[in-house]
Simulated assay, not measured.
Amino acid sequence: MLHVMPNRVEKLSLLSEMIAFAKSDTELKTIEYNFLLGVAKQLEISREDFDYLIEHPINSIHLKSHSERIVQFHRLVLLMHIDQERTQEEVAKLYNYGLRMGLNHESITRVLYLMEGFPDMMVPAEVLIDIFKVQYN
């Protein structure tokens, strides 16, 4: 499978979505900020651009690559658990986010269910990818 890295606009969009996801319950907590800053570095987004996005969100762009959508969903799963506070509202929001990205609802449900069995509810990336691969084939 050909894996194409997202372009700069797509990267900024991904980060903006994650910031919005983190901010929806309250203001951005320090632990969430640091996690998101780490994602920004991974995506080669400067701290200045990252800080700008916090105050000025941009419209989301639908990722074409199925694998990129899975990676983004995994980032959101990690983000949801970073502050150790998980509400039903957050889980529902994550579920709906996955659906909007075009991910399979059975796979999303399975990931959310399996989270309970992992330490700190962190689903390993390879497990998550396998779940989505099964549905994608």
Rank of each mutant, 00 (worst) to 15 (best):
Gln84Arg: 13
Ser65Pro: 01
Leu79Lys: 03
Asp51Tyr: 02
Gln72Ala: 12
Ala125Ile: 15
Glu32Cys: 04
Lys133Pro: 01
Leu43Ala: 09
Thr109Met: 10
Val134Phe: 07
Val39Thr: 10
Ser60Lys: 06
Glu116Phe: 01
Ser46Leu: 05
Lys29Phe: 10
Glu10Thr: 11
Ala125His: 11
Phe132Met: 04
Arg8Glu: 15
Leu43Asp: 05
Ile82Phe: 03
Pro57Met: 03
Met80Ile: 09
Gly117His: 12
Gln135Gly: 01
Lys41Thr: 14
Asn137Ser: 12
Met80Cys: 04
Tyr97Lys: 13
Lys93Val: 11
Lys11Ala: 04
Pro124Gly: 13
Ser16Asp: 03
Ala22Ile: 06
Ile54Thr: 08
Asp120Asn: 13
Met115Phe: 05
Asp120Phe: 08
Val127Glu: 13
Ile129Ala: 08
Leu15Asn: 09
Glu126Cys: 09
Ala125Trp: 15
Ile129Phe: 12
Leu37Ile: 02
Leu15Ser: 08
Glu85Asp: 07
Ile31Tyr: 07
Tyr136Val: 02
Val71Phe: 08
His66Asn: 06
Asn34Val: 10
Thr87Ile: 01
Val77Gly: 01
Arg100Ile: 00
Glu48Gln: 14
Ala22Tyr: 13
Leu128Glu: 14
Glu32His: 06
Pro124Phe: 05
Ser13Phe: 03
Leu94Lys: 10
Tyr136Leu: 11
Ser24Trp: 05
Gly38Lys: 13
Leu103Glu: 10
Thr26Glu: 13
Ser46Gln: 09
Phe35Ser: 11
Val71Gly: 00
Gly38Met: 07
Gln72Trp: 12
Lys11Cys: 10
Asn34Ser: 10
Asp120Leu: 12
Val39Gln: 11
Ile82Lys: 14
Phe73Ile: 10
Val39Tyr: 11
Leu94Trp: 04
Ile58Ala: 00
His66Val: 07
Leu2Lys: 14
Lys41Ser: 10
Arg47Asn: 09
Tyr113Asn: 13
Ser60Phe: 00
Ile61Pro: 00
